[in-house]
Design a protein around this nucleic acid. Structure first.
Lengths: 337, 337
DNA sequence: AGATGGCGAGAAAACGTTTTCTGGAAACGT
DNA sequence: ACGTTTCCAGAAAACGTTTTCTCGCCATCT
């Protein structure tokens, strides 16, 4: 500890000394506290200003037992959905004086629990966004992460609030949209295996199958990226489907691009739908029909839930489900064959 | 402090007690430290496991005088450029065991200094990304934020490393690209007033004007968003320019959309260029000619600079300039009038 | 006038770690 | 066998705050 009085950061002690008062008084003044002599307050304030005193957040956190920071764990920072979610949380939290620590698991599900644990140790709470880990692991981890808010994933533990999107219903709505346009052969370009959202879509489509036995539905494996969609163009064409439900907007845009390269007309030859309604979905050519998910709101609500958890732990955790809304745009049209 | 022995978090003290050793030993064992009796180590480890001990990061930070966290301040989390930058920093920092705290100033330049200061107090260093504050303010703030890395902004203080994009050269390259295609009347759809990048573009274009007196160049005021571009379609048409340089890809995409609505053919009637080469630029219709900025790399390098700063403060700060690369795509073509 | 109450400021404990300091025992050399 | 060094574990200080506790002083009430 080479602290030769020189480069040391100025602390509350220095201020107290300079103002000729005790640490306690400085702390009281700095926290805008009640009942402290105006004269002392003034002395402290000028001393603080002269020394350019900056309170040390770590010391403060230790004494207070809180960091005013929450962690947000996302599977992939490059994904517009998670970006939007992060932004929503960040802005809402900032309103209440909280900051956000980010943890990007880069779609490596085994990293998630470690990242989440680390985040929790540094923060007052954690928002787990669409974790890829399996149910058992999530179940086991949840208690140690509390206060915990789950997004796009729920757990048997009723205590942790969750905000989920009804992907199952949304994909059915999109399918219905295509059927109404006269399509009888659909294809679903599915997403990451481990994604709970993908499972929900598959289940929704299973229900759709039984509800509409006359409609043929082919399921293709895919991914969640633009490239996955782009690379699936050929496979999609081979199915002979006239309506394609892409896992999300990114995949749909990739597919659009791949089809365009092959001279396939959308929606003339094939109709394509996305999911999420990311900002760019409106501006593809043709504009993408998709199911809108209010991702910024979800982020904001995630913070509201967290705030409740941080405040009175006794209040009721809520489990909100968001219904996606079909946005018919140019990428879908009447079936022609 | 209602700590009735019950809900208290398990600390190093509890582990020590259970293992029948001192705090010091537990600390030594937990830090994988040298020279501690294997028997004691084992006792500590089992005790820690049984109690499910989680070290408290705040206490640790206080003792160590470091938080293993850096702050990143961006003007707008909704902007793909800053998202990319943030992602680059985050991933690179994670490699070295550091986390990232985000601060979104929402383009409110007056908030920036406060946010940056707060971030610095909680973190070991700050990355300021394209701050909108003026030079004087930046100059004044910089010392108190150190270790500080600047992105897309530099300061007279040679001590703080900076990573800047040569927007001035990039915009000239794009203009040149249009001129070579035969365009003689260009328009520049400018960005936010306070943006240093916008100033750099304007200066670059000024130089371009003197280098190419035969070319007409009209400057329009605009913004940095899709909407700004979309709303400028009419104004652009009124200039009579056949080649339009948009402030960035977002603006260009908005313009593309606005022109499309008016039945203007791109690049048949008008050529349009963007800037940044965000992921979606490749997939607009037509694909957007733009100047590519390696934003992820910049984020990563920002971390590398920060790491240097955090390590040996004595080493030389570097000031890297990134040259944008023109990517000719479908949105630009030969002039027809 | 003396006892009591309130109020405000300083001393000290607390938060949970790491690290220096210290002392005792073992190891080693002469 | 004795003195010196080495090593290791525990005690205590340190990190920078907040907050409780304590004490002295002044005012008020009887």
């Amino acid at each position: 500890m080479a602290r030769k009085t020189a480069n040391r950061r100025v602390g509350i002690t220095d201020v107290a000394q300079r103002a000729g008062v005790s640490l306690a008084s400085v702390s009281r003044v700095m926290n805008g506290n009640f009942s402290v002599d105006p004269d002392i307050a003034a002395r402290v304030r000028t001393a603080a200003a002269e020394l350019n005193y900056q309170p040390n957040a770590v010391g403060r956190s230790l004494a207070l037992g809180k960091t005013d920071t929450i962690g947000v764990v996302v599977p992939d920072l490059a994904n517009p959905t998670f970006q939007g979610m992060l932004r929503g949380v960040s802005r809402a939290a900032a309103q209440d004086g909280y900051r956000v620590l980010i943890a990007d698991s880069s779609e490596v599900s085994s990293e998630e629990s470690i990242l989440a644990g680390e985040a929790r140790r540094r923060c007052d709470g954690v928002v787990l966004c669409a974790p890829r880990m399996n149910d058992a692991e999530l179940e086991a981890l949840a208690p140690s992460l509390r206060p915990l808010v789950l997004v796009n994933r729920s757990t048997a533990d009723i205590q942790t609030p969750s905000l989920v999107v009804d992907y199952g219903q949304g994909i059915q709505d999109l399918a219905m949209h295509l059927v109404k346009l006269g399509h009888t052969h659909l294809a679903f370009l599915s997403g990451p295996e481990r994604s709970a959202g993908n499972q929900a879509r598959l289940q929704g489509l299973e229900k759709f199958r039984t509800d509409h036995p006359a409609v043929t539905l082919t399921v293709l494996s895919g991914g969640s990226s633009f490239e996955a969609g782009h690379g699936s163009a050929e496979a999609v064409l081979e199915t002979g489907a006239t309506g394609v439900l892409a896992f999300n907007d990114l995949v749909a845009m990739g597919l659009l691009s791949g089809l365009h390269e092959r001279g396939v007309d959308v929606p003339g030859d094939i109709s394509v739908t996305g999911f999420d309604d990311i900002p760019f979905a409106n501006y593809t050519t043709p504009p993408l029909t998709t199911a809108a998910v209010p991702i910024n709101d979800i982020g904001e609500q995630a913070w509201q839930e967290m705030r409740r958890l941080l405040g009175d732990a006794a209040s009721e955790p809520s489990h909100t489900t968001f219904q996606p809304e079909v946005r018919p745009r140019g990428s879908t049209g009447p079936a022609t064959r």
